[in-house]
Structures are given as structure tokens and as C-alpha cells.
Amino acid sequence: MFKILEAEVLADKTYKMVVEAPNVAHACEPGQFLIVRADEESERIALTICDYDREKETVTIVFQTIGESSYKIAEKKAGDSFIDVVGPLGNPAEYVNEPIEEVRKRHYLLVGGGLGTAPVYPQAKWLKEHGVDVDVIIGTRNHDTLIMEQEMIDAVGEEHVFVTTDDGSYKRHGMVTAVIEDLVKNEGRKYDRCVSIGPMIMMKFCVKMTRELGIPTIVSMNPIMVDGTGMCGACRLVVGDEVRFACVDGPEFDGFKVDFDSAMKRMKLYKSEEGRRLLAYQEGSTHHGGCGNCG
């Protein structure tokens, strides 16, 4: 069992937990993820590693509720436990294993969209701690859905953090792509690498922009997964002309080569069934099919 030490609500349907997981905490690096199972009947849910503490042997996860199993994870309180936490999974970010002198020659632009802000955080922190120049863009729907702004500012400095909201309710107004364009074209900033993590549609458009600007871009893919260890093949993606697996070949890939359209299509597969199961779980014995017409 894996004990939950802290649990807090960050925003609507968005949660943060600190969990005891020595095997993950000892070894994880920016770019990797883990899998949680709330209880015996739950699915294996792939989640972002948002932070880790090697001494305390803890990891921090940030997630949103989508289906029944993630809802069960969210229902847990500090002091409760998960039946399974396994990781780290996937490969570390490419710079982790590169000679640090090479990495320091580059200027990094990190782009986090919505929940994607959470996995961007350990990357920003790692790069800053290793003396690498880094700017961070956080994109979110509105002020209420914004997460981790202060942590990001503490990690890389206020002048390097750019927040934008879709509705203009906080700081900049508009999509992350507009901020990228503004920083490069109007403020004359130069970037040698972009790391973009967020909803697939955001990453797709982000890559469109960075391609125009000539900035090589890494994206972190989060397709449907089952085992997450290189066995089931559910997380397959088309990258270049090849079939690649996010769990063992990724999750980070060359954004210029990822076929986002087919990846987005595959995400739809279980939407309706997951929704129905979530409804049945929330409504318990009062659930007769969810139509609202019974009785």
C-alpha cells in the first residue's frame, strides 16, 4: 500500500497529492510518469509526476478527474492509501542524459497547457537548478483553472513566467501560441528548444507555431494506456512513419513528427463508456441509466 501524505484541491476537478512511493522517488526524472490504482477494481491510471523528494521518498501527483477510476483516486484523503503506485515509467527528458555543457548552450521554452503545467514544473525546476536558461508559458482557460503559478515563479523567477488565459480573466489574453509568437517576434527572445505539454490539440497548434519559428519542439504524449510497461500496445502512436509506443519509446517525442490527428482520434475510444461508468458510480443505487426520466 502507498500512503497519501497530503491531498488538496487545486482547481475544479484538479487535485494534488503527495504520496509515499520509494521506488519511484529514488529514480524518477523530469519527463517520466507513474501509474496509480486506487483499489482492486480500479483501472491503472497513468499520471504525471509533478515533483519528487528523494529523501522523504515521496512523489507529488497532479491530476484531473475524468472517469470512474480517477474519481476514486480523487476521493482519497490524506492518511488513506493507494493499492498500487508503480514507476517511474517512460524515458526521462532528453537533456537529463545529455552532457550538461551542451544543454547549457541552449535557451529553453517550456509550454504547459492546463493540467500540462504540472509535468512542466519538474522540467523547469531541473533546468534552472542545472543553470540552463528557461522561460515558461502557462496557458489555461481562466483564472480559476490556473494551477501552480507560484511554484513556477519560485522555480524560475517571475520574469520568466508568462501566464495566459483563454478568456483574458488573468494576465495575458489568448492562446499559448500567441504568447510564443509575441515572445519571439516582438520581444526578440531566442529559443533553441521548446517542450510543450498539454492537451493534444494545444500541442498540435504549438508545434505548428514553433515549426514556423524554427524551434525544435518536444511534446509529451498521454495516450490511452493499460499496463504502461511495454506490453499491451494501447499507447501506440504514429511518429514519422513508424508505430511507436508512448510508454517505452516516449512519452516525449519530436513534435514535428507526431501524427496528432490520429492520436486525438484514438483518445475518443472509451469516452462514452467511461462517462456512463462515472455516472453510475456517482449516483450509486439511485442510478438507473442516467436519463433523468425515471421515477
Partner: peptide, 23 residues
């Protein structure tokens, strides 16, 4: 153990409803 499933590399393999037997 055995590892990742093989696919045929034919058109339509990314369609919804195509599984590997492993999955």
C-alpha cells in the same frame, strides 16, 4: 517476457476498435 505487440502496417490500423491481442 515477450513484450510489445506487432502490427501489420496496413492502412486503418489506428482506427478506433483496432486492438492488439495483448491489450
Amino acid at each position: 517476457g515477450a513484450g510489445l505487440p506487432m502490427f501489420m502496417h496496413i492502412p486503418g490500423e489506428q482506427a478506433l476498435g483496432v486492438y492488439s491481442a495483448n491489450e
